[in-house]
Design a protein around this nucleic acid. Sequence first.
DNA 1: TCTGTTGTTCGAATGTATTCGAACAATAGA
DNA 2: TCTATTGTTCGAATACATTCGAACAACAGA
Lengths: 116, 116
Amino acid sequence: MKILHHPDREEIHLSSVLYALSDPLRLHLVATLYKEGERACGDIEVPVVKSTLSHHARTLRESGVIYVRAQGTQRILSVRTEDLNARFPGLLESVLHAYEISGDTSEIFSCADMKK
Amino acid sequence: MKILHHPDREEIHLSSVLYALSDPLRLHLVATLYKEGERACGDIEVPVVKSTLSHHARTLRESGVIYVRAQGTQRILSVRTEDLNARFPGLLESVLHAYEISGDTSEIFSCADMKK
DNA sequence: TCTGTTGTTCGAATGTATTCGAACAATAGA
DNA sequence: TCTATTGTTCGAATACATTCGAACAACAGA
């Protein structure tokens, strides 16, 4: 099993975190993990194929937002809540709260922005 | 003078705001405006030419992060603090606080990530 | 009206993101 | 060992971002 790189707490950069969270699908992913706890990739309902989901999970992992561990053939994803709160106090909470009240929580499942 | 479009408060989207703030130069810009109040483009020290600055200001304006008004030949930029706080309570403050304590505040002036 | 200042827009060059399907790898379980 | 499950990596297609310089537009002030 190949080792998955996770940045150390001090190596987590604000710009990278904001960028990682700026994609609606990734934000949905993080909100789901935050609310419902750790999850395997396959157990999260997203409107993309698995290779795309894997790509987004990688972006989130490399930015320091999520932790990924192997369990059999599965990859268990979880939010690095403690690390993020230590590095950027209040940030995660305010972003996810903003997400909940924003009304954009179903955005990724809509057809409004489909290709013409 | 051409009118500059600003999204209404309700039209401000979290993903767009996070994306706008995920660029180190734009984040520096917003932090400066937030700390020191409104500013003309030319009065902000940034390591890019004016056309690039104009592009970033546009990105911030269209995402709803800043307000731009004309004053003579100048464009006065300011953070839409009230609108952002109303739409996403605590978000702006936690992002800018995170920025201040992150140690990345001089990132955009460094040569570490110059082209090889 | 002429000139300098301040920004915007355009075009081009370069780089990066997003998405998919196909091929691959690792593991669990029969 | 064989097979099905789960996810990663690769290659290709497409789209978008970033940056610069040049040309342009709007305005202030002489």
